[in-house]
Amino acid sequence: MRRLLRIALLLPLLALGFPVQAQVPFGQASGVKEGLEIGTSTSEIAITSDFRGADLTIFGALTNADELFLAIGQYDVVVTLEGPKDYATVRKKERVFGIWMNTEGMTFEQVPESYSLASTRMIDSIDEAPSLNNIGVGIDHLALNPVGYIPDSGMIGEFRDAYRRLKLTNGLYQRDTSGVRFVSSSLFRASLKLPANIPDGMHMVRAYLFKSGQLITQREMPLRVVKTGIEQAITDAAHDRPIAYGFLCVLIAIITGWGASIVFRKD
């Protein structure tokens, strides 16, 4: 069952920006800088136990946009949803005496556990790679810094590629290069995919506005993902009160075993 979590935002339509801007002659920088507004109807998503992934819709608007640039498609919007950060370890198996075993590993510093991206077009055609690396936008441009000193830089590239590939395969990293659509000249809608295995915690929605390949402004807003239901209660119990949890597991085993011997007793 795929449930659509539609988080709509009621945006005040760009009432203010346009009249002023229309008077700025073509080619000249307008005195007013472009702005970007985004919003979702909620700052919290509750994930129930039958969660199979969902779509998150974010609405946004450009303010003070230059109409001519808009008309020739010089504005690009990238919206990302970054999950909580943690260390991540990538391991590589090699055949040793005929058996496949992990021989090498690399730990990356504080990378988002999940990352979903929507953009107006391929992000690599929006901006140059070095500047994308700089701002860390895009799966291929996220900062992946290994912990400790790795003398072989070729190995770092290899493990980075493996990390991105694995994350894309298990759905925790996603990208949709046509996920941002302009619904009117300056109002856009971004659809982000939340994978079924989305980690809970504080996520961050970030929106970036590019003009002719230059990042001109960005916005961010937190989004809390909380898992609810009995399963989450169990996970919490296992981590917060492990002794009591372990005791309960043993107790269930004793009751089950004992109960069966009473129920099925022949005499």
């Binding site: 370890t89 912990v147 694995l166």
Partner: peptide, 16 residues
Amino acid sequence: LIVTPSDVYSVAVGGM
């Protein structure tokens, strides 16, 4: 253990 795994890389949350 002997059959070539479909992917020789694996990823885990957390550090070594």
